[in-house]
């Protein structure tokens, strides 16, 4: 369970560049919730995810993961609760290390790094199995450097890494945006599979309204650092793009600006 209580984040406070990126935002996600997050550029989506992950500390408000107050916990300590996949496929993996080494590091997320050997035989077998589950043939390339893989393959591995230690929260920030449409589709399907198999509480930012509607059990739209729309349950299931646009126009009193979101 993830809870944000009146969270505010201001960048460059007191300067001409002052920007309230997240504004008194409150949100509660139940276990197993899969929330898709949409909103125009600069709406504060990434900032919200980064606050949860601990990249920034909020200026005010609280963040709770399973009732543990993580507001002041440093990023690397919080990582034990959180799996992340980034927009840039290069960000999620160590490209000079091979596939199994990357997975082994992810398997030790939030644990002490000891002088024990960095990878053992049993886990190697587990990785082989999990990789073959991706259906990309990566199980035969476990000792290849990740740097040699395509963006889609990297994202698939990053997803696997994020889910390895059953995180309490999975954060996906436009993790298919850098991929071609076909690969994006594969990675999205994989996302659904991994999320449902591991029953992961997930937040997925996307600029694609269709994806936001087709995936997850709840959809929030952000605007100016706040949650503008929060659609769940039956309403989410039956949601269409037209509904969404109409709701947006009603609530915000403005016409939806981003054409990109329509794609």
């Amino acid at each position: 369970m993830l809870e944000l209580q009146n969270v505010t984040k201001v960048f460059n406070p007191g300067t001409v560049n002052e920007k309230v990126a997240v504004n008194n935002l409150s949100l509660k996600m139940e276990d197993g919730d899969f929330v898709t997050v949409i909103g125009s550029n600069g709406a504060g989506k990434s900032t919200m995810l980064n606050l949860v992950a601990g990249l920034w500390k909020p200026d005010s408000g609280k963040i709770l993961i399973d009732d543990i107050d993580v507001t002041k916990m440093p990023e690397h300590k919080r990582a034990k609760y959180i799996g992340r996949v980034f927009q840039d496929p290069h960000d999620g993996t160590a490209s000079d290390m091979n596939i199994e080494e990357n997975l082994a590091i992810a398997a030790r997320r939030g644990k002490k790094h000891t002088l024990k050997w960095g990878i053992n035989k049993t886990e190697r077998e587990l990785y082989r199995e999990l990789l073959s589950g991706l259906g990309l043939g990566l199980e035969d390339r476990m000792t290849s450097k990740v740097g040699l893989l395509s963006g889609g393959q990297r994202q698939a591995i990053t997803l696997l890494m994020a889910s390895l230690e059953s995180p309490k929260i999975l954060l996906l920030d436009e993790h298919t945006a850098a991929l071609d449409p076909k690969t994006a589709k594969v990675v999205l399907e994989l996302t659904d599979k991994i999320v449902s198999q591991n029953h992961l509480t997930t937040m997925m930012v996307t600029h694609n309204m269709k994806d936001a509607i087709a995936h997850g059990n709840r959809l929030i739209m952000m605007n100016n650092g706040s949650v503008l729309l929060d659609i769940k349950g039956e309403e989410k299931k039956n949601l269409t793009i037209e509904d969404l646009l109409e709701k947006f126009n009603q609530t915000s009193g403005q016409v939806f600006a981003s054409d990109k979101a329509l794609l």
Partner: peptide, 8 residues
Amino acid sequence: KMSRAQGI
């Protein structure tokens, strides 16, 4: 970035 995300 990856290292921090992996709790390192």
